[in-house]
Simulated assay, not measured.
Amino acid sequence: MAKIAPECRYSEEHEWVATRSDSMAWVGVSAVATDALGEIVYLDLPEAGSEVTAGSTCGEIESTKSVSDLYSPVSGTVVEVNQEAIDNPALVNEDPYGAGWLFTVEVTSEGPLLSAEEYASKNGGEL
């Protein structure tokens, strides 16, 4: 069963958000998503300085099984992109809540987010 990080909040599309400060947050994809996708081989992420909108597509994740849209769980300005994950997409499979984070955002608003408990209940993960 996929691990759910209790300190994160989650979108219906399986992205997670971890708040770094009042306005800064990390964004990544959950272990539930990485399990479903299989081996991730390519990431197309938003560029630093670009604007993302909660609930809107902001990139793609390609695996050996499929190509999936990446949705932003928050609105704001992308501050940093995880170049290590772009260079080595397997990091997202290996450590989705740590080294496999995708980008950071200076958040202006959030989309609808689930608590870790709500997300685990809906998706069968374990805390």
Results as ranks from 00 to 15, higher is better:
residue 86 I to R: 00
residue 93 N to R: 06
residue 80 E to G: 09
residue 111 G to E: 05
residue 104 T to E: 09
residue 110 E to W: 04
residue 100 G to D: 00
residue 68 S to E: 12
residue 52 V to L: 00
residue 50 S to A: 07
residue 78 V to W: 08
residue 7 E to P: 08
residue 76 G to S: 11
residue 77 T to Q: 07
residue 8 C to L: 10
residue 113 L to K: 03
residue 53 T to E: 07
residue 37 L to V: 09
residue 50 S to V: 10
residue 10 Y to F: 08
residue 30 S to T: 14
residue 85 A to M: 09
residue 94 E to W: 09
residue 7 E to I: 07
residue 29 V to C: 04
residue 87 D to T: 01
residue 98 G to M: 12
residue 18 A to C: 09
residue 60 E to Q: 14
residue 108 T to E: 10
residue 35 D to F: 02
residue 68 S to A: 12
residue 75 S to E: 00
residue 17 V to A: 03
residue 72 S to T: 10
residue 66 S to L: 13
residue 91 L to Q: 02
residue 123 N to K: 14
residue 75 S to V: 07
residue 91 L to F: 06
residue 115 S to R: 04
residue 90 A to E: 08
residue 30 S to E: 03
residue 106 E to I: 14
residue 43 L to K: 03
residue 88 N to Y: 11
residue 105 V to G: 00
residue 82 N to L: 04
residue 34 T to P: 02
residue 57 T to V: 09
residue 108 T to Q: 00
residue 88 N to T: 15
residue 9 R to V: 05
residue 84 E to N: 12
residue 80 E to P: 06
residue 23 S to K: 13
residue 40 I to R: 01
residue 58 C to H: 05
residue 35 D to S: 14
residue 36 A to D: 09
residue 53 T to Y: 09
residue 36 A to H: 08
residue 19 T to N: 15
residue 118 E to Y: 11
residue 5 A to N: 15
residue 127 L to C: 13
residue 56 S to V: 15
residue 46 P to K: 04
residue 62 E to T: 13
residue 43 L to A: 01
residue 107 V to H: 01
residue 20 R to A: 10
residue 5 A to G: 08
residue 48 A to T: 14
residue 85 A to K: 00
residue 45 L to M: 10
residue 51 E to C: 07
residue 34 T to R: 06
residue 88 N to P: 10
residue 26 W to C: 08
residue 61 I to H: 04
residue 70 L to D: 05
residue 12 E to T: 12
residue 114 L to Y: 12
residue 105 V to I: 15
residue 66 S to I: 13
residue 115 S to H: 07
residue 4 I to A: 04
residue 124 G to N: 11
residue 118 E to A: 14
residue 87 D to N: 07
residue 100 G to I: 02
residue 87 D to G: 08
residue 124 G to I: 08
residue 51 E to S: 12
residue 16 W to Q: 01
residue 110 E to M: 13
residue 80 E to A: 10
residue 49 G to R: 04
residue 50 S to T: 13
residue 104 T to R: 10
residue 47 E to T: 12
residue 30 S to L: 06
residue 124 G to V: 14
residue 87 D to F: 04
residue 2 A to P: 14
residue 90 A to H: 05
residue 55 G to S: 03
residue 112 P to V: 10
residue 11 S to W: 02
residue 43 L to C: 12
residue 36 A to R: 10
residue 93 N to P: 03
residue 14 H to S: 00
residue 78 V to S: 04
residue 68 S to T: 13
residue 95 D to E: 06
residue 78 V to G: 01
residue 100 G to M: 00
residue 96 P to W: 00
residue 54 A to G: 07
residue 37 L to T: 01
residue 86 I to L: 09
residue 95 D to M: 07
